[in-house]
């Protein structure tokens, strides 16, 4: 068994163990109002961080590029209350246009 197989199987086993462990923690651990509140705040923080990292960074570097134009158009679409597919497609079209032709 070489390094490639060890990495493939080891990563897969731990990845599933982490996912399943999360699903197996007793429900009542999350029943207090403060924990419910926290539970609602976590996705706000994580989604914000995901947007930031996927817009402004590449390989651990902070970079401003065509993606910022795409995401800016998405912000504009959201302010104008555009439906979800319009938000995503307008971002993709803007980004691709700048990437390919500028």
């Amino acid at each position: 068994m070489n390094a490639f197989w060890i990495a493939t199987i080891g990563t897969s086993v731990i990845a599933f163990a982490l996912k399943f462990a999360g699903h197996s923690i007793p429900q009542h651990w999350l029943e207090s109002p403060k924990l419910q509140k926290t539970n609602a705040l976590i996705p706000i923080a994580l989604l914000s961080a995901l947007v930031a990292v996927q817009t402004f960074t590449s390989e651990s570097k902070v970079i401003i590029d065509h993606r910022l134009a795409g995401v800016s158009i998405a912000v504009l679409a959201l302010i104008l209350k555009a439906p979800f597919p319009v938000v995503v497609i307008s971002a993709a079209v803007t980004s691709a246009a700048i990437y390919n032709w500028l």
Binding site: I44, L47, V51, Q54, L78, A91, A92, S95
Partner: peptide, 21 residues
């Protein structure tokens, strides 16, 4: 990137985040 997918993904996450703010 040539298909704009690298912007579509953060835009999708932004669309999910927006109503929560």
């Amino acid at each position: 990137r040539a298909w704009g997918l690298d912007s579509a993904v953060p835009a999708a996450f932004l669309g999910l985040l927006w109503p929560r703010l």
